[in-house]
Amino acid sequence: MLKIWNGMFVGVGGLGTITLKRIFEYAALKEPKIKKIIGAEKHGLAQREGAVDVYVRFLLSDNDEVPKYYLTSPTISIGEADLVIGLEPVEVLRNSKYTSSQTVFIINTNTIQPPLSISGQVKYPSIEEIKNAIKEISGSSKIIMFNATELAMNKMGQALYTNNIMLGAAISTGAIPISKEKIEETIAEQLKDVKKNLKAINIGYNIGTDLLSKI
């Protein structure tokens, strides 16, 4: 059985979207059932606080032989995302056409207002409005939203750990086809301050489990 798994990570330039994506890719190399890895990143202009959308796609199979040309597009299509990690809430809404009732969402509610909202020309929607819109567009019930930045500041003292808290919450939903151990192993290999980063994963894992049980 061939299955394509699609992750979509969205945010704003500078939030670490690409680093998060790379953790997935390195971890995927350790997972025998993942036969192919592909995914587009956004560089350049996006680093100037522009909207960032990156994709990570896996070809899953229990069989060692897979077709050479099967998973070939670096970007995903409408309704295809299995997992969305949103580092900024409005950016999830912007990309919500790629989601469906099958999509699991992990969304940081910490907002980054674009210039036109700061200047008051365009209203930045409320978290409630964003949540309702995502719910209707996707039809998904698995939408986990919390302020991961605040949590990182309060529990870890630095916003730097936000993304690993999000990652921990994503692991808790079972939406990632890689085991928690392999992801933790990857973090130990790829990141500095391993202890703190693993602590962040567990904080996220616990809050994810908790929020999921309340849905």
Partner: peptide, 10 residues
């Protein structure tokens, strides 16, 4: 509902 997000000065 979605505010546009253009690249900006840091």
């Amino acid at each position: 509902l979605i505010p546009p997000r253009f690249p900006v000065f840091c």
